[in-house]
Amino acid sequence: MNIEDIRSILGAKYLVGEEWKDREVHTACGSDMMSDVLAFMKDQSVLLTGLCNLQVIRTCEMMDIICIVFVRGKLPDEAMIEMAKEKGIAVLSTGHRMFAACGMLYENGLRGGPDYK
C-alpha cells in the first residue's frame, strides 16, 4: 500500500506531500498518546491520530514515520504544516473517526507492528 492508496481508502485530502504519494507504507499505528507511538518502532509507517499539535510532527520525525493521517477532520496549524514539509512527512486529513479509519486500512491489508514487549 502506498500513501495515495491510504488517501483514497480514507477519502482523505493532502495537506502536505502529494508529491510523495507513491511512497510505500508497510505498517500503521493509531494513537493519541505520543509515548505509545514512541514505543513502537517500524520502518515506513503511517500514524493515525486525533491529536493535533507540534509534538505529533516531532514524534513522527524521531520515528521516521512517513505519513500522518489526522482523523475526525482535524486540521494542523501553519507551524505544523511547515515542520512536516521540512521533515519530508506527508500529512492527510480525513473526516472518519479513529476506529473507522484504522478498520478501513486494516480491511485493505495494512497491519500494525508486533505486540508491545
Partner: peptide, 16 residues
Amino acid sequence: NLGFGAGMGLPNMKKY
C-alpha cells in the same frame, strides 16, 4: 491532553 504523560517515557528510554 498534549499526548504525553502515559508513563512510557522512562521505559521507552531504557528500551531504546
